[in-house]
Amino acid sequence: MLLKKKKTEVRALGRHISVSADKARRVIDQIRGRSYEETLMILELMPYKACYPIFKLVYSAAANASYTMGSAEDNLIIIKAEVNEGTVVKKLKPRARGRSYAIKKATCHITIGVKDISLDIYEDISFYSLKKPRWKKPSMVDRDIYNSEVVWDKK
């Protein structure tokens, strides 16, 4: 009988958040690998603009975990927290003498992954769903400790 680990991870994705990726990474690096309750306390006390959208995403990921897997908030850990750059919103601001000045507003995409540490359950999988390995077993190689030459097995 073969066992396969059940899925215990859930994620929440926030796209086009109006914070630059570098400013969001400053906050994300503080919460990666921490528990859910500790993360909420950290995000409430940090004085950055990026904390509020990240707070909402962590809360959403916990709600997704409780809905899909029925997990309690005490068992959740932030395992994946990443920030990618999004599109740049370009606006024009009128200036003196009829000129215009370009304003570029950066956006980012934030992904929060949550894992339930109490759900390490395995399920049965059939023998036929497994793939055959592509590699072949190499032949045996014996090294003679008295001589520096390699002796190959001949079969």
Rank of each mutant, 00 (worst) to 15 (best):
M1R: 06
K7N: 09
E9I: 09
A12G: 04
G14E: 00
G14N: 00
R15D: 00
S18N: 10
V19C: 13
D22Q: 14
R26C: 05
S35Y: 10
E38P: 06
T39E: 03
L40M: 15
L40N: 11
L45P: 00
M46K: 09
Y48G: 00
K49V: 10
C51H: 00
Y52F: 02
L57S: 03
S60F: 08
A65V: 03
S66Y: 05
T68K: 14
A72V: 04
A72S: 13
D74P: 01
N75M: 09
L76S: 04
L76H: 05
I77Q: 03
K80N: 13
A81M: 05
E82C: 09
E85D: 15
E85M: 12
V89S: 09
K91G: 02
K91F: 03
P94S: 06
R95T: 02
R97N: 12
R99N: 03
S100M: 08
S100A: 12
A102N: 07
I103H: 05
K104D: 09
A106C: 06
I112S: 09
I112P: 01
G113N: 08
G113V: 08
V114W: 03
V114P: 01
V114C: 08
V114M: 14
K115Q: 13
L119M: 14
I121L: 15
S126A: 14
F127S: 07
F127C: 01
Y128F: 10
K132N: 06
P133L: 04
K136F: 08
K136C: 02
K137I: 08
S139T: 09
D144T: 06
D153G: 06
D153T: 10
